[in-house]
Every structure is written in structure tokens, then in C-alpha cells.
Design a protein around this nucleic acid. Sequence first.
DNA 1: TCTGGGGTCCTAGGACCC
DNA 2: TCTGGGGTCCTAGGACCC
Length: 395
Amino acid sequence: VSGTILHADADAFFAAVEQRDDRRLRGRPVIVGGGVVMAASYEARAFGVRGGMSGPRARRLCPDAVVVEPRFDAYVEASRALFGVFARTAPLVEGVSLEEAFLDVRGLERIAGSPEWIAARLRREVRAAVGLAVTVGAASSKVVAKVASRTAKPDGLLVVPAGGELEFLHPLPLERLWGVGPATARKLRRRGLVTVGDVARLTENELVGLLGRNAGRHLHAIARGEDPRPVRPRGRRRSFGSQFAGELRGAAETDAALAAVVERVTRRMRASGRIGRTVVLRLRFGDYATRASRSRTLVEPTASTAAILAAARALLASATPLIERDGLTLVGVSVLGLEDDADQLVLPVDGAGGGSLDAALNVVRDRFGSDAITRATLLGREERLAPWVGPGDVR
DNA sequence: TCTGGGGTCCTAGGACCC
DNA sequence: TCTGGGGTCCTAGGACCC
């Protein structure tokens, strides 16, 4: 069936929200984030500015760009509105990030019209209700819908009809495929392959030999536009992490960075009412290429700063020889193996009657008894949501 | 061109258990 | 006494995505 899956993706999301909220920025090159480019408006991209680029480099490329600090609250709010339109458009929505989702519109033909019509209306409604441009790709599978939206950006709509998948995919450069990153692209290019069609001419066995069993099979399928993965709402996040990048000179400086990183992670965990059991230490060394990770699984899950910092320090000590040889340029900590913290309740103060901390505490006492609270912490909205809210947190 | 920060999933080997 | 298949958990690394 043609176009039963839509991929909707808001264009230059952070930058577009800034331009929406400040008309002086409209039509001008806008860069969100000073240290590193988190988003660039299309006006800035015309100068070669890209996400992930260092701030100084971006300003060299585009000296006239307006650089604004990110406002995560505004992005989360815009994302809520965006997903509100998605939810009104299709019964089944899979959020990929704050600004992007797959929508299953199978069976909506008689109610809502053809996929093309649904997609066009979705774009109009987002424009009207959220004030942003969203590009939509429609196809019979997730990969093809995703590649279609990539191809139609910005502010576009591309429907790939059933049966037209290969005609659409095969002339495209193989890097366009969703799931082909730098490493895979390098391997394929070394074999002289350039387009998706070139990849599709390889047998499954050849691709398995090149990339491994699973990756090879997957690429063999998607190069033919075959992707059995259904549109499925994502579950909750599976890890919390944070990192510090920069030259770390000496043990004291490294330990201070480690402590700050752990504090950020555990604070967010407590704010979400989650605890975790596996602590992962990530390191990058002086050559900026070599990386290593060390992990340790605790007996009991925790969100305690002290417990996780102790584990992280032990892991760091186990990597001392590597550090002494090369120096460190990054230290990061992630916590996996998440569970709900049964002893902790996180509730929004403004939703607990009265809009004050005392009122919220009284709600808890009423429900669980006067001695239920051993400790209460007031968290800002931004601590709960930003930075980098996962799609599992949006709903 | 020097270097993002936050995530997800897969692979592979070893330990341990039944 | 020797061989064995299959499952789960843990650790380290790698690829990819936004």
C-alpha cells in the first residue's frame, strides 16, 4: 500500500523556534549554541554551517550569523505542540526525537483521505498551530519514508508510491540511506560502490561478509526498500549520561570533572525517579581518536551521587595506565540498568494543588501518611526536561 | 577541520548455571 | 569421566542517530 507510513521532521528545529519567536531573526542566518552549533537555520547552512561544528569555525564561515543561546524550555514546548498535531493526525506515532516522528496512517484512507492528502494537511496544521515548517516523507516502509523526508527538505513533501521504491532509492548516494554511517559508507566506497543501487546489486552473503551478520542483512533489505519494522511508540529511556570534553591536566582536575559529571547524571535520575545499576565510565585520550570504556555493575540500583561517584572513581583508577600514557580529553559517565525508584515520588508542584511546595508536600502526606517524606527537593522545570530530552520523555 | 552532547542497539567472549 | 547444548548476565567496543 502506498504511503502508509509518514516520516515528519521539523526543519532546523531549534533555529526555527528562535526565528518564530523573534521576528528580527527571520530571513537571517541563525546559529543556536555558542560553543558548539546545536542547530543552524537554512540561511546559515548556505554558508556551510552544520550542526556539531565548533562555534568559532561556524562564525568564520558565516560572520554575519546571529548566535543565540539555546532555550530548551521553548523547544520542549514547541515539541509538545508538534506531537499534539501528530497525535491528531494518526493513532500510532513513534517519536524519534523532539522534532521528528513516524506516523502510521494505514487504514485512514476512507476517514482522512489519501496519504498525500493527510501529509499535506499535517504540514498545514503544524504551520498554523506551531508556527514551524515540517517536511514529510510518505512510503510503504520506515526507511523509505525517512529517506524521502531527507530528500524533500526543507519545507517539502515527497510521496513514494508503492512499487516506486527502487526507482526512488537506487539513484541516490548510498550515504543517504538511514542506517549507513561513516564507517559503513567507507567500507562500501572502498569496494567502488557509490549509489544505493550499487549496494542492492550485492548478494546478502557479500554484505554479511563485509559488515557482519545483522548489519549485512539489514543493509541488504533496506537497499531494496524493505523494512519490516513497525511504527511503534518508544518505551522509556534506558540510560542517563553526561560528559565533559576538554584537556584534563592532572588527577585533581580529572576528579573534579568526574564529580561534576556524576552530579549532573544523578540529579537528573533523581528528578525522574529512576535508579540504575550499571555505571559506565567513558574516556577519550590525548590523540582525540582513542577511546575506552570501563563499566561495573553494582549489587543494588541507586541514584546516589556518592555511590555512583565511588564506582566511577574506582573505574577511573583501573584505567590509570592508559591515562598516564596519553592524557585525557574527555570523561563521561552513563548509568544503565534503570528501574523505577519505588521510594521516590516525583510530582509537578503546579499540578498538585496550590502551586507551592508546601501544597505539594501536603498532597503527599495526605496520601501516604505524615511521616512518608524523609526528604524533599524542589527541582526546576529545566532540570526535569533539559538538556536533551529523549523521545521517551516527551509523552 | 581539529574535535558536541545525549542517546540506542549490536557483537563477541567469558563466567556461570541447569 | 567426559562431553554438551542452551540460557542469562557482565564487560568492552563499535556503529549509528539527532
